[in-house]
Write a protein that binds this DNA or RNA. Sequence first.
DNA 1: CCGAAACTTTGATCTGGATCAAATCGCGAT
DNA 2: ATCGCGATTTGATCCAGATCAAAGTTTCGG
Lengths: 240, 240
Amino acid sequence: MDVARSQVPEAGTPVACRSCQAQHGVVCGALSSGQLRELGRHSLRRKVDAGSEIIAQGSESSFYSNITRGVVKLCKVMPDGRQQIVGLQFAPDFVGRPFVRESTLSAEAATDAEICVFPRNLLDRMISETPELQRSLHDQALKELDAAREWMLTLGRRTAEEKVASLLYLIATHAEPQSAASTAFDLPLSRAEIADFLGLTIETVSRQMTRLRKSGVIRIENVRHIVVPDMDELEKKISG
Amino acid sequence: MDVARSQVPEAGTPVACRSCQAQHGVVCGALSSGQLRELGRHSLRRKVDAGSEIIAQGSESSFYSNITRGVVKLCKVMPDGRQQIVGLQFAPDFVGRPFVRESTLSAEAATDAEICVFPRNLLDRMISETPELQRSLHDQALKELDAAREWMLTLGRRTAEEKVASLLYLIATHAEPQSAASTAFDLPLSRAEIADFLGLTIETVSRQMTRLRKSGVIRIENVRHIVVPDMDELEKKISG
DNA sequence: CCGAAACTTTGATCTGGATCAAATCGCGAT
DNA sequence: ATCGCGATTTGATCCAGATCAAAGTTTCGG
């Protein structure tokens, strides 16, 4: 999409970061009120439509952001077009790679989303001045590392059915619950994106979804809306 | 192997950490000389044989270590025995997961190795007192995260031949060079371990190796010793 | 030096998931 | 409502890599 334009977030309302603090676990939770105020003065709240790029692979980005609503996917694409989603980020995750200018992956809104954008320079300075913040970002990095490694196991050693079940479980676990039991949720990804996350093709994803449906593990209310009557049954399909 | 015993490193020579400082990029480079001395007093240098476990998956470990020689593999195994190597660590990498007691993966020496072991409590304290050190470990975590995501692309979207070429390239790039051109190296992994890293079977790994040999990209001097006449040719096999 | 066990290669066959092809379904625009 | 187009499902066939089987080869203890 409009990569160039989205590199510099020109549209957005200046906000006191304080106003979205509750959602900003990773960054704002670690800041003093003075720092919060300063960060707030230089932050923009911005809406991004599903599909639009936040950071382009191989580009230099001069800002970081916090997700305040929606889901962001991290992708790597090969020169020949093959593509792999290497991570999903949910509110209130932090997006951006501290200390490095060039990104080896792209970040793209999977759903309509809202992010709070702030300048790289400022945050880099705050990181070096605030061990709390460093620690907080270190924690997020370690959490992402665990997730990435868990997914390596899925990619390398699980069958197509196990892969699809793993993804549904991941979403069910991270999506904001719509029903009390959190067993009903909207998929933030299309079939093609699911395929790119699982290292499969669209057709295989579709077939495995109907397989899970026919075996009673899930109900597909709608292409994007899934109900899991019994979460244990879904877990059993993952095996490990 | 002897998991229980290896959990507490009882064998080893106490060393001043200073003595291996040159190799301890990640941890020791960020410490003051006083801290170095203290860490040294509580460190053990320890030799570990190829195949022996350093940290067991699901266990609580009370120590961290630095690799001073050799290669360590990080594995995840499923209840049914399927196994995935999720990372390779080379000297002078740091091994251990700060801030968390239980490990979700096992660390095992892939080759005969030497590590410098120190107590978790002490290092955790030093981390919280030393922003430099926090930063250094944060950097390593981000480096590992990049590597994990790069490998996700390999696992999800590359063919068997590309996978094997990727692994050879990784080793060639990280192994201490034996020839000046660094195009000859020992494999730190058996065929079975390579298969577990690439999400393939032993047979497929073997076949792809002979395919690369027959196409002139590599020479197999010995099962464990590889020569790459032209590194560019190897890179071409990776595609991306 | 010999022999057994473990590791690696090679061959034959099978199969899960890819690819190719064709309906359906959904949904925004007219 | 109806059209049209992209997304999804379903079906038929193919093939890369798995599995099964059998030779080599390396390693190492005696």
